[in-house]
């Protein structure tokens, strides 16, 4: 349904060019939940913004294609993008307040969006609004509809934002760290909700997060990004339980989850490379514990190898 091909995005700053995304390839099928995991600076959010055409002015899409049902989104005019954004592809951000109008009752906001997308009467919109609130498991929709965003808790706000995003309803929901600002118990509820929307309404979800645990709960497929590149991708269970790339392996090792408290965690030494002076070879080479001579000069491409899922590493090719 959505396919990203050879995407390169650069940022122009006065200190030079930052290669934020390099050679990004992936696709999302109907009804699929795809997770993009990565740490800060990996380019996971930039990827989402590029799909939605929401990049800042200093960003430059150097090459690549993003096709949505046959249309190249990058070639569309602003107006055409706007008809797709919100209606076909919707987004949920980390901070729900940014997506809500602060001085409008949430019910009104939701009805307005429903009316815009579905061409229905005011009365019908109101009814649909209550249904939508019910769909995101808000138990007293009539009451909540009359509240202002500031009167609601973080979890409730995020539910409203999801209801807004689902109003059209879209084909694809892009969720950028939607649960990071929430408590774990609330996060759990929101994840359940998104899973249910995916199953019941068939909406595909592109789920962007730094949390491997979250990915394991909700995503069918997982893409791991590092320094603006996809370094591993495949079925979630394969990527997380039989990771092939040393970075993915190290990331899982570094989690304190279920580790023996008497043994030090296996931290990844060093820092993410400066994207202005991207290393010639593999971006992870300087931190990799399995680094070989070839890694320093030749960047490995993402490839299918030995019946495994896709991975960008020289190690896997023997």
């Amino acid at each position: 349904m959505l396919e990203v091909k050879d995407l390169h995005v650069n940022f122009q700053t006065f200190r030079g060019t930052i290669e934020a995304l390099k050679n990004i390839n992936f696709s999302i099928a109907e009804k699929e939940v795809v997770g993009i995991v990565g740490e800060s600076g990996s380019g996971k959010s930039i990827t989402a913004l590029t799909i939605l055409g929401l990049l800042e002015k200093n960003a430059d899409i150097a090459s690549g294609e993003i096709t949505y049902r046959g249309d190249n989104l990058l070639a569309l005019s602003k107006k055409e993008i706007q008809t797709i954004r919100g209606k076909k592809i919707a987004m949920v951000f980390q901070e729900p307040m940014t997506a809500l109008h602060p001085t409008m009752k949430v019910g009104e906001q939701l009805s307005e969006v429903i009316r815009r997308h579905r061409n229905v009467s005011r009365k019908e919109a109101k009814r649909l609004m209550l249904v939508a609130l019910n769909d995101v498991h808000i138990h007293q929709p009539e009451y909540v509809a009359k509240q202002y965003p500031f009167e609601l808790s973080g979890g409730m706000r995020q539910r409203i934002v999801i209801a807004l995003a689902m109003a059209a309803p879209p084909d694809l929901l892009i969720a950028d760290e939607p649960t990071t600002a929430l408590d774990v118990t609330i996060q759990h509820e929101i994840l359940q909700l998104m899973k249910e929307l995916n199953e019941k309404k068939g909406t595909s979800i592109l789920f962007i997060t730094h949390d491997l645990g979250v990915v394991s709960q909700i995503c069918n497929r997982t893409i791991v990004m590092y320094a603006g590149e996809v370094i591993e991708s495949g079925e979630t269970k394969d990527v997380l339980y039989t990771p092939q790339h040393p970075y993915t392996k190290a990331l899982i090792e570094a989690l304190p989850d279920g580790k023996n408290a008497n043994v030090p965690l296996k931290a990844i030494q060093g820092e993410v490379p400066n994207l202005m002076e991207r290393p010639i070879g593999c971006a992870f080479a300087s931190r990799c514990s399995h680094v070989m001579e070839t890694c320093k000069t030749n960047p490995p491409a993402l490839a299918h190898w030995q019946n495994q899922h896709d991975v960008a590493c020289w190690l896997e090719r023997g």
Binding site: R15, I18, S40, S45, I46, Q94, N274, L275
Partner: peptide
Amino acid sequence: MELQPQAESVQAQPVKKSALLYK
């Protein structure tokens, strides 16, 4: 949040004064 990569690599560089002058 959406500009993390930028922020990260910008912070890596000790060039505050020249930034002022540039602007």
